[in-house]
């Protein structure tokens, strides 16, 4: 070991190994992973989110799973929870849409309105 900078290099690389275990007070992304969600393809959605965050070096966002949220017909469901308590619920997720949520909502802070439960239900109603 020659310098603090060299140590910092190792630390940065090692951070990826353990970040998941650090306390995070930032945004939480929750993916519905009950039987219905998994059948509808929640697993690739979750993995996409984890990978996208990593690619962008975003470390203060926690990705967790939850059980059935109760609107199985709209699965896969992804919720983004702000530390201030606000919550945005995205439905009918795909890996592509999930990518979008990371780049738009998480990085730029712009909610992807088209995917939210409110918009989707409105559209469903107008079709009916």
């Amino acid at each position: 070991m020659k310098s603090l900078a060299e140590l910092e290099e190792i630390r940065k690389k090692a951070l990826d190994k353990i970040n998941i275990r650090k306390e995070n007070n930032g945004v939480r992304i929750v993916v519905g992973m009950a039987t219905c969600g998994i059948a509808a393809g929640a697993r690739p959605v979750m993995n996409t989110i984890v990978e996208e965050l990593k690619k962008r070096n975003i470390n203060d966002v926690t990705v967790t799973m939850t059980g059935c949220i109760g609107v199985c017909r709209l699965e896969p469901i992804v919720e983004v929870l702000d530390p201030d308590g606000s919550r945005v619920t995205y439905v009918n997720m795909t890996p592509e849409k999930a990518q979008h949520i990371v780049s738009e909502h998480i990085v730029n802070g712009r909610i992807c309105l088209d995917y939210t439960i409110g918009e989707v239900e409105k559209k469903e109603k107008s079709k009916a």
Partner: peptide, 10 residues
């Protein structure tokens, strides 16, 4: 590496 990740040896 895990120790270093938690600010070890800093």
């Amino acid at each position: 590496d895990e120790y270093i990740a938690f600010d070890g040896y800093k």
